[in-house]
Amino acid sequence: MTLPVLYPLRSTSSATVRFTNAPHGRRRVTIDHRPLAGVTPAMLLDWFTHLDGTLTYGGQTVPRYLAWHPLDHIRWELARPAPGGGAAEGARFRIVEAFGGNPAYRIDIVDRVEKLDETGIRLVTRIAGVVVVMLEHTWSACDEGTHYVSVMDLGARSAVMRPVNALLRRRFPDDMARAWVRHNIEEVGQLEHLLPRLASAEMAAGRTA
């Protein structure tokens, strides 16, 4: 399903981005986003716990995940429910997307949700029990709406995992990391448009039910 882009995509200049090299070939990318107007932490929690849902977008009912970034998102699925059911801590998310719509930057990964609450979400990939990739989004209320920060850590902290870190560098090179930064800034910015409209629609449905 190909969807139009209904809302403006944020530019990379709208956020503060830092690339940090760490011991043993690790790398960290930090994105401090411009605040999301009209968005609350509760809305974000609801969004991430209901990514399998739908919404009205351009006059049609579509998967939330595809509307989130019409150009880059391909598929999302709940690969394994949380111990208590659903998309919560302990669940596994399968994420398929191509940064910038570029097939060379396509990922198809299953991440474990190690945190999901009103302060943020943490997704991790492990090899032999060792965290080798961690993506954490944290958010908090601010005067402008919600302050949102994304941090991606590539590589394990242990020196013995240096060869794995080098492999990650080759599979996720600098140009792909920059494409991910743009992708992340664009998709986070879309939440400023999608979430308030979704909340209004759900409130209206509740009043008429």
Rank of each mutant, 00 (worst) to 15 (best):
R26V: 02
D46H: 13
Q60M: 09
G59M: 06
D32V: 13
F48D: 12
G25D: 06
L44F: 06
I74E: 13
G38H: 02
R80A: 15
P81A: 13
Q60P: 00
I31C: 00
A87T: 08
R26C: 05
N102Q: 12
W68G: 06
A98V: 04
T49G: 10
G101L: 08
R34F: 02
G25S: 11
A42R: 11
G84W: 00
N102D: 15
R28F: 12
E89T: 13
D72F: 03
T40Y: 02
V39A: 02
V29S: 03
G84A: 15
R26A: 11
T54H: 14
D72I: 05
G90A: 10
G53H: 13
F99Y: 15
L36M: 02
A82L: 07
P81K: 07
H50I: 03
D32M: 02
R28E: 14
F93C: 07
E77W: 04
L66P: 00
W76H: 14
T20A: 05
G58F: 07
G58T: 10
R92Y: 13
R94W: 06
P63V: 08
A67I: 12
T40W: 01
G38W: 02
G84F: 00
A37N: 07
T56Y: 02
L55W: 14
E89V: 14
R34V: 03
H69N: 15
F19C: 01
A88C: 02
D52V: 05
T49P: 03
G59F: 08
I31Y: 00
N21F: 01
P41K: 02
A82K: 07
N21D: 13
G58H: 08
H24V: 10
N102Y: 05
G84E: 13
E89D: 00
T20G: 00
V96W: 01
G58Y: 04
G100W: 08
F99A: 14
P63M: 04
T54L: 02
G84K: 11
E97F: 03
G53A: 14
F19T: 03
G59H: 08
H73C: 08
W68T: 06
L66F: 07
E77N: 09
R34W: 01
Y65E: 04
F93A: 11
H73S: 09
G90Q: 09
A37Q: 08
T20S: 11
M43T: 01
D32W: 00
E97R: 04
L71P: 00
A42Q: 14
L44I: 11
I74L: 15
H33I: 01
W76C: 07
H73V: 04
G53R: 14
R27N: 04
D72P: 06
A22I: 03
W76F: 15
L66K: 11
L45P: 01
G101S: 09
Y65D: 04
G100T: 10
G85M: 04
P23S: 09
L66V: 06
T40L: 01
G85P: 08
G53C: 12
W76D: 05
M43P: 00
E77A: 12
R92N: 07
Q60E: 14
G90S: 09
G100A: 11
D52Q: 14
R28Q: 11
V96K: 12
V96E: 14
W76A: 10
R80C: 09
P41F: 03
T20K: 11
V62Y: 01
G59D: 02
E77Q: 12
A87K: 01
E97C: 05
T30Y: 01
